[in-house]
C-alpha cells in the first residue's frame, strides 16, 4: 500500500498549484469549473423534472454521435461534432419515448436498453476505426482535462473558449426562460394552461443537455458527466428549496469541487476529472450530514415527539 500513495508533499499539493504550476493548473481549474458549473446549472432542471437518468442516457449516446459525425465528415471540426452529438441526443430521447409509449416496457428499462445500445455502437465503431478516429476508450472514461494546454502557451486554449461560451449560453438561456422553465418543471399542467409550450421546453432542455454533454465530453468523458449534472444540484437541493438560490449554490459547489479536485488529483497522482467528481461527492456528503433542514444530524438527535395535539385539530 505504501508504494501506492505518494508521500504527501505540502509544497507540491497545496502551494505549487497556485505558484509554479499555475499556467497549467489554472487552465485545468478554469476548464473544470466551466464544465461543472454548466452541467450543474442544467442538472438543476433535470433533477426537478425527474429526468436525471436522461442525463445519463444522453451523455452516453454522445459517443456514437461523435464517431459517426467524424466518419461521415472526416474532420474533427467543432460544428460537425456538435451536430452529430446533438442528433444522437435527440435520437436517444425519441427512442426512449417510443419504446416507453408503444410497449409496456417502463421508462427506466427503455432508458437502459437505449443508451447501452447506442454506447455499444460507439465503442465498437471506435475500436474498428481506431486508427482513423482520434478517440480511444481511455478518453471516453476519463476525459482529457489534463491535456489542455497551459494558459501561457499562446493565448487561451480553444477548449476553454468553447466551454466558456457554452457556459455563457446556458446562463443566458436560463435567465431568459427562467419563468417558463420554473413553471413547466414544477407543474406541466399549470404551465400548459398558462400558455407555456411544454413540449418545446422539454425538447429544448434535451437539446441543451446534448450540447452540454458533447462539450463536456472532451474534458471529462461520457460517464463522469452524470456526476457533474447531478451532484451540484443535489447538494444545493439539500441546502435550500428556492430555485434561484439553488443555481447560486450549484455554481459555488462547482467552483469548490474543482479547486479541491485538482489538489486531490495532485496528491493522489490520479486523473483530474474523476478527482473533481470525488471532491464534489465529498462536498455532497458534508451537505447530507450537516444540512440545516434535511441533514442526518437531525436524525441522530432524538426526534422530538409531539407532546400535545395541535390546536386546530381538536
Amino acid at each position: 500500500m505504501n508504494e501506492l500513495l505518494p508521500a504527501f508533499d505540502f509544497h507540491h499539493v497545496v502551494v505549487a498549484p497556485w505558484t509554479d504550476y499555475l499556467p497549467a493548473t489554472g487552465a485545468w481549474m478554469l476548464m473544470g469549473f466551466f464544465v461543472t458549473a454548466t452541467c450543474g446549472l442544467v442538472g438543476n432542471y433535470l433533477m426537478l423534472r425527474r429526468m436525471a437518468l436522461m442525463g445519463d442516457a444522453v451523455s452516453h449516446s454522445v459517443l456514437p454521435g461523435l464517431v459517426i459525425a467524424f466518419l461521415i465528415t472526416g474532420t474533427r471540426g467543432t460544428w460537425a461534432m456538435f451536430l452529430g452529438a446533438l442528433l444522437a441526443g435527440v435520437a436517444t430521447t425519441v427512442i426512449v419515448e417510443t419504446i416507453h409509449r408503444k410497449t409496456r416496457v417502463k421508462q427506466d428499462a427503455s432508458i437502459g436498453v437505449t443508451f447501452t445500445t447506442l454506447f455499444a455502437i460507439g465503442v465498437v465503431l471506435v475500436s474498428v476505426y481506431s486508427s482513423q478516429v482520434d478517440l480511444d476508450a481511455e478518453c471516453v472514461l476519463y476525459g482529457e482535462i489534463g491535456n489542455i494546454a497551459a494558459l501561457d502557451e499562446g493565448g487561451i486554449p480553444a477548449p476553454l473558449v468553447r466551454m466558456g461560451s457554452v457556459l455563457i449560453g446556458v446562463v443566458l438561456l436560463i435567465t431568459i426562460f427562467y419563468k417558463q422553465l420554473l413553471v413547466s418543471s414544477f407543474d406541466p399542467g399549470l404551465a400548459r394552461s398558462l400558455g407555456v409550450n411544454t413540449t418545446a421546453t422539454h425538447y429544448g432542455t434535451m437539446i441543451v443537455l446534448s450540447i452540454v454533454a458533447v462539450s463536456a465530453f472532451e474534458a471529462v468523458g461520457a460517464i463522469l458527466v452524470v456526476a457533474m449534472l447531478i451532484l451540484p444540484g443535489a447538494t444545493s437541493g439539500l441546502l435550500t428549496t428556492r430555485l434561484a438560490r439553488m443555481h447560486g449554490l450549484s455554481v459555488v459547489h462547482a467552483a469548490l469541487s474543482t479547486v479541491l479536485g485538482v489538489h486531490l488529483a495532485l496528491a493522489l497522482g490520479s486523473q483530474i476529472a474523476p478527482a473533481i467528481v470525488v471532491a464534489g461527492a465529498g462536498l455532497f456528503g458534508l451537505a447530507w450530514v450537516f444540512s440545516p433542514t434535511q441533514g442526518l444530524w437531525l436524525r441522530w438527535r432524538k426526534p422530538a415527539k409531539p407532546g400535545t395535539a395541535p390546536a386546530e385539530a381538536s
Partner: peptide, 9 residues
C-alpha cells in the same frame, strides 16, 4: 411522522 412532520398523533 413523515420527514419530521406528524401525520397521525
Amino acid at each position: 411522522a413523515y420527514h419530521q412532520k406528524p401525520v397521525l398523533w
